[in-house]
Design a protein around this nucleic acid. Structure first.
Lengths: 230, 230
DNA sequence: TGTCGTTTCTGAACACGTTCAGGAAATCTC
DNA sequence: GAGATTTCCTGAACGTGTTCAGAAACGACA
């Protein structure tokens, strides 16, 4: 009899188990929601013990970091086509924003379920936490690109520099609305995006006029001073 | 033998027990934090059974609604002196906003602990939930008063009508920052309030000029259309 | 092959929020 | 007052996320 042997060139045992657990977990999460999926159910479905899941993941919450990363990469991919082809700032901004909603809308129940943890300032899942700095940077990078690649954007240098972060915050606001939005297909959120984007673009365009220039400078100085760091 | 009788003119039995439970709970919450306080500990400290606590309160979360109300009334009281004496819109707005921070700052650890539930859209503690409609109305009422009592506010009628709600949302943003603010005594949040209030006031003042009038109308129409109701 | 050390895995046990069948006490009705 | 009804209260039990003492599998070296 030949001894049972691992597949040729397969990843090490531990890594396979880890993947098995996280894949099973995400499948159940999507199927039944986060709360309704128990650690025991995940372990059973994956054919391992609960303790084994905790050997690889410190908590149930840590299991969803994988979903975060997945969702984030979906957004990057969806926004890519817009950013690669559209020259107008307004179109680019609308594109990045609506694709963000698109990619989350597909699994809204799950995302909303998760939101409670994202909103907890002490949770590693908070978008402001140190742990999610990579995801945050990646998300902001889309707005950096939306700004730098826009060919019709004539704005002061200091605004140009701060704009991506402000737009990212704007996105956070829209997502916050989306989480509470119970309208069919979240159509209210789409309407919010469609209708605030032109306002934002106009406001940005007006920033160089005397009437608003002072206000804008104050605002930018404020953002610089009150970043979460200190 | 005379039968045991209730105190003269005392509240009905049920109401007394209810108060006993909620008072005990708040004391323990403040002492040990929300998470660390168990329902069993509350029941034991109050000298009742766990089931009894659940007879009066559907969940542990509902027990903190009392804290909400208390904090809210503290805010109303603190803002009262400003609203009763100050005629300038900017001073009134600053007063309402900073007293909101003041009253929460006293028990920041507890408030932050609670915030995770407040941020959960499905929780009764969410400021947007039906259960907290009374607290929300009371909170907004302060901004209604800040606007209607201001003697130096010359703005279009449609803005005047929507302004309190917008200012309330503005307050929510400041509170969101406060929750994440780790600076000593939350001084960054106070700085945020001090420095954004003049910007907001100026922006409101500019709303009647042609350059911004169109933008403002769009924005107000948007708010009317996308209220959480439908 | 046999023994040691590490990695991987097990499942009973813990404390938690919550539920519920039913008992005790108060209140009402006649 | 006696019985009926409503209000108030009990504590064991359930399912949850998480922990932990130890068992099993594996790899390296003799």
């Amino acid at each position: 009899m030949t001894a049972p042997r691992p597949e040729a060139a397969s990843p090490p045992k531990g890594e396979r188990t880890r993947q098995l657990i996280v894949d099973t977990a995400l499948e159940l999460f999507r199927d039944r929601g986060y709360e309704a999926t128990t650690m025991r159910a995940i372990a059973t479905a994956a054919g391992v013990s609960v303790g084994n899941a905790y050997y690889y993941f410190p908590s149930k919450q840590h299991l969803v970091q994988a979903y975060y990363d997945h969702s984030q990469s979906l957004h990057v991919e969806a926004a890519r086509s817009v950013l690669d082809s559209e020259p107008s700032f307004e179109t680019r901004l609308r594109g990045v924003l609506t694709t963000r909603i698109d990619t989350m809308q597909a699994e809204k129940a799950f995302a909303v379920d998760l939101f409670r943890y994202a909103a907890d300032p002490t949770s590693p899942l908070s978008p402001f936490s140190a742990e999610s700095a990579p995801a945050r940077e990646a998300s902001m990078a889309l707005y950096v690109e939306a700004v730098t690649g826009a060919q019709d954007l004539k704005i002061p240098a200091e605004l140009r520099e701060a704009l991506p972060e402000l737009l990212w915050l704007y996105q956070m606001g829209v997502v916050l609305y989306w989480v509470h939005d119970r309208s069919r297909g979240s159509k209210n959120t789409y309407a919010l995006a469609e209708r605030t984007v032109p306002i934002v673009v106009k406001l940005v365009g007006l920033a160089r006029y005397r009437l608003l220039k002072g206000l804008m400078s104050d605002l930018l100085e404020l953002v610089r001073d009150l970043r979460p760091n200190p």
